[in-house]
Simulated assay, not measured.
Amino acid sequence: MARFRYQKKDGEFAAAFASMKDPIAFAGTAAITEAGDIVKRQGRQDIAAAGFSRRWQNALRVNIYPRRKQSMNAAALIYHNIQYAGVFEEGATITGKPRLWLPLPSVPKRVGRQKMTPALYIKSIGPLVSIERPGKPPLLAGKIAINRRGSKTGKVSLSALKRGGAGAPSTLVPLFVGIDRVNIRDRFSIREITERAAARLGDLYLKHLNPDG
């Protein structure tokens, strides 16, 4: 009977393990990175297909951890920079207290960098007048400057509203409509896209572990 004896050398096992660890860490990090890129690309396409702007598309982000390092424990954080974006992933019903006041299409969308709301309008432009309509949603109206003939000066603009709010000859123009609630349907599929990318991690790992295979 033949006998074999192995005598380890100091540091040999650690060196052997390290030689295995490096390609595993590379493949794991590369797989997570590629899956994250898939989610970001397809997710932004999904947001675009739902009719949202470039700003909304680019607000979908993917961060890979640890940053700028290869690790067997690499992970991807997928998030949207706009905090309420999840409403369009899940759908929701938003109720007013007691009403939601939505700007009419003709209303200027912003005052400076802030989104137009009744509170912002009152603070920066002037008072609003409530108009009750039996059987119909109520309105909030503001004062808009009129010309010498007594008619509105073109479209509803911030400058005309500010002149009317400041005391210039004016007439009332509806700006906001009040509703009890609004139902928002789900319009994004980011979770589904993420799950599909996660299901590919095994194949992506093998691809990067053996790039010549």
Rank of each mutant, 00 (worst) to 15 (best):
R99K: 14
L120R: 02
G135I: 09
G112A: 04
L158F: 00
S130H: 11
L161K: 02
R99T: 07
I144C: 05
S130A: 13
M116C: 04
P98Y: 09
S130I: 11
V156H: 05
S157D: 06
P108F: 00
R113A: 11
E132S: 14
G164N: 06
G142K: 03
I144R: 09
G154Q: 12
I131V: 15
G154E: 10
I146F: 04
V156W: 03
G112Q: 03
V111W: 01
K123A: 05
T153N: 12
P103Y: 08
R149T: 13
I131S: 10
K152H: 08
G112K: 03
P108S: 01
P118D: 04
L140A: 06
K115I: 03
L161S: 05
I146S: 08
L128Y: 05
A119V: 08
E132C: 05
A160G: 10
I144Y: 01
K115A: 06
K97M: 03
S124E: 15
I122K: 06
T153E: 14
T153M: 12
G154R: 13
R149H: 07
G142R: 04
S157T: 15
Y121H: 13
R149V: 08
P138Q: 10
G142S: 04
K155Q: 14
K136V: 02
E132F: 00
L102H: 07
N147K: 08
L128M: 06
R110Q: 14
L158I: 13
I144S: 10
S130K: 15
R148L: 06
K162N: 04
G164H: 04
K123L: 00
L161F: 02
P134A: 14
I146T: 15
P108H: 01
L100T: 14
G150C: 07
S124V: 06
L140G: 07
V111P: 02
P105V: 01
Q114E: 14
V111I: 15
I94F: 01
L104Q: 13
G135M: 09
K115G: 04
W101C: 13
I144D: 05
M116H: 03
P137D: 09
S151T: 13
S124P: 00
